[in-house]
């Protein structure tokens, strides 16, 4: 991991309270897997960095795309950053999604809200490998939805919204219960309550989940973002052992 002041090339609003940042810097060359994150320092006024997943990256252009949602004062202040300026970024952090081996043919991607972005580059890479991609994307309401057309270029997309303004009314799990289960692997990212529901519903299918949690250092030293695990050690650190875990190795409460 490195600390770098990355150049902001673009900064635009893409949905309700949701923004897209295009950053340029050397750090992009260090990205290993889709699903890794960066730890963003908004300004000296904020004591904790904000973990943001990497939505997409382009090694040859040296750019990465971050999507974030305004959740409080810090992310609100982030919206004020302008293209041409620089952002203090620590990264790339954590372990991303492992790409499947040759025996897998059909992947199911499940994203909830601001959990959707890290699945984007994964979908792209799965598609490049010739693996069939089905995506289930859940949002609160139509105004919150984003990236749907982009995911459609990689395969079928099913959308759910809590209020039914777009796609199926309800949660991603309501869509999953209607899907034919022909997929051999699933990848999910979203709020813990969603991940738990997905894990229960897809218990028979091998899967990977990406966790979100309030973080301190973001490099594995402070133990702020731990989760119970099934190994002898008994815990994993989301920032460095994760954020992506095999669904069988962690215990969600």
């Amino acid at each position: 991991m490195k600390r770098e002041f990355m150049k902001i090339l673009e900064h635009t609003s893409i949905a309700n309270d949701t923004y897209r940042l295009l950053l340029e810097g050397e750090m992009v060359q260090d990205i290993v897997d889709p699903g890794q994150f960066v730890h963003v320092q908004i300004s000296d006024d904020f004591y904790l960095r904000r973990p943001v997943s990497i939505c997409d990256y382009n090694r040859s252009e040296g750019t990465m795309t971050l999507l974030y949602k305004v959740m409080g004062k810090g992310t609100d202040a982030l919206t004020k950053k302008e293209a041409g300026g620089f952002l203090d970024v620590l990264g790339p952090g954590g372990q991303g999604f492992p790409l499947p081996g040759d025996e897998q043919t059909h992947a199911l991607l499940i994203g909830g809200g601001i959990g959707v972005p890290p699945l984007y580059n994964l979908a792209k890479q799965l598609n490049d490998k010739g693996i069939r991609v089905t995506s289930v994307l859940g949002f609160q309401t139509k105004a919150d939805a984003f990236l749907i057309e982009e995911f459609e270029s990689f395969g079928e997309v099913y959308v759910s919204t809590n209020d039914g303004t777009l796609g199926t009314k309800g949660f991603v799990t309501d869509v999953l219960s209607q899907l034919e289960s022909v997929h051999d692997t699933y990848y999910a990212c979203g709020p813990t309550v969603m991940l738990k529901a997905v894990m229960d519903q897809l218990e028979e299918v091998p899967g990977y989940i990406s966790m979100e949690e309030r973080m301190g250092c973001g490099i594995g030293a402070c133990f702020a973002c731990v989760i119970e695990s099934r190994d002898d050690k008994g815990y994993k650190r989301i920032c460095c052992d994760g954020p992506v875990f095999d669904a069988k190795e962690v215990v969600l409460s």
Partner: peptide, 8 residues
């Protein structure tokens, strides 16, 4: 193991 999360 320590406390439940959130811890910060």
């Amino acid at each position: 193991f320590g406390n439940p999360t959130p811890r910060v």
